[in-house]
């Protein structure tokens, strides 16, 4: 009931805004090569076997539609991520993803806010929405500047904050330090009872966001939180095919070094960027977590009919 109502509200919201609902394949011949994202592989059993992946997000396929001139589109679909299971994770989850041609990151954030205000009960959002830059909120909660700090400063602050184990976990990897300190120290201390946007991530955490044209050390990426819980992630999309290919190749390289499977690049997606992806912003929101927030549930299993962990 609760889920049906949420899906209905979301569909109405986008219908009113003239955003077209689309469907793209769950089983797709390519996947996201980011080393922190683990895909389920499926192998077809015909004479000419080949590997398909359960989609970790419908991003590549939806961007192909955008490049084909679809205009604003949204999709509600299942997404799959291997080895993600816990209080906030189920390996199969429901994702809402949408793209708005011509939107800036600011316009995207405003749209996300309007949507969340529609679905989340007013008593969970008592205060005005906070718009915080990654750099300011990290500096505020951790005590050092994420853009400037050296690895040894990360180490010192982790020990001071009571996370000495971070030193051996993160070692010399800047991204690991940012992930560790952000998830342990920043998220836990974000403002509560309101929608919180954290935007302008460091360029090394750009994922598929474009870099800020005037401040290339920043990525035009945003994450949205309620009560410290990440609900979604969005970008002013990277449309430059050369940069996109470079990012993919360095992710493949990283995977090789870590002895992880290295998926082939999605040339159809890169071809779409080559042909011209319109300037746009896009967002992905985990609807199971939105339900958890709406109904104040402690575990994702409480909003799923048949959670994987109980089967």
């Amino acid at each position: 009931m609760a889920r049906a109502r949420l899906l209905r509200t979301v569909r109405q919201f986008f219908q009113r805004r003239k955003v077209l609902e689309v469907e793209t394949p769950s089983l797709y011949p390519y996947t996201n090569p980011e080393p922190v994202i683990d895909s389920f592989e499926c192998i077809t059993d015909n004479i000419n076997p080949r590997t398909y992946y359960l989609q970790t997000s419908p991003e590549f396929a939806m961007k192909r539609l955008l490049a084909n001139g679809s205009g604003a589109i949204f999709q509600i679909c299942k997404a799959y991520r291997k080895s993600e299971s816990g209080r906030w994770h189920n390996p199969e989850f429901t994702m809402l993803e949408w793209y708005q041609p011509g939107y800036t990151l600011q316009q995207l954030m405003e749209e996300i806010e309007s949507l969340l205000i529609k679905v989340i009960p007013a008593d969970r959002i008592q205060k005005n929405t906070e718009y915080l830059t990654y750099q300011s909120v990290f500096t505020d909660k951790v005590g050092i500047d994420p853009m400037q700090a050296s690895i040894s400063e990360f180490k010192d602050i982790a020990v001071q904050l009571g996370f000495p184990e971070a030193v051996s976990i993160c070692q010399h990897q800047r991204n690991a330090w940012l992930d560790f300190l952000f998830s342990h120290q920043v998220q836990a201390n974000l403002p509560r009872n309101c929608i919180v946007f954290v935007y302008h991530y460091p360029a090394c955490q750009a994922a598929l966001a474009r870099l800020h044209p005037e401040h290339p050390q920043l990525a035009e990426r945003v994450e949205v939180f309620i009560d410290g819980v990440e609900l979604g992630n969005g970008y002013r999309e990277l449309t430059d095919v050369v940069q996109q290919r470079q990012r993919f190749e360095s992710q493949q390289q990283e995977r090789r070094q870590l002895d992880m499977p290295v998926p082939e690049l999605d040339e159809m997606f890169l071809g779409a960027l080559q042909a011209g992806l319109p300037d746009c912003s896009g967002m992905a929101i985990g609807l199971d977590r939105v339900l958890m927030s709406m109904y104040n549930r402690e575990h994702i299993d409480h909003v799923l009919a048949f959670p994987l962990s109980r089967q």
Partner: peptide, 15 residues
């Protein structure tokens, strides 16, 4: 208690 902590686009930890 065991909690799986993972930023959507980041490293996974067990707290």
């Amino acid at each position: 208690e065991n909690e799986f902590v993972k930023p959507g686009k980041g490293q996974a930890f067990n707290r």
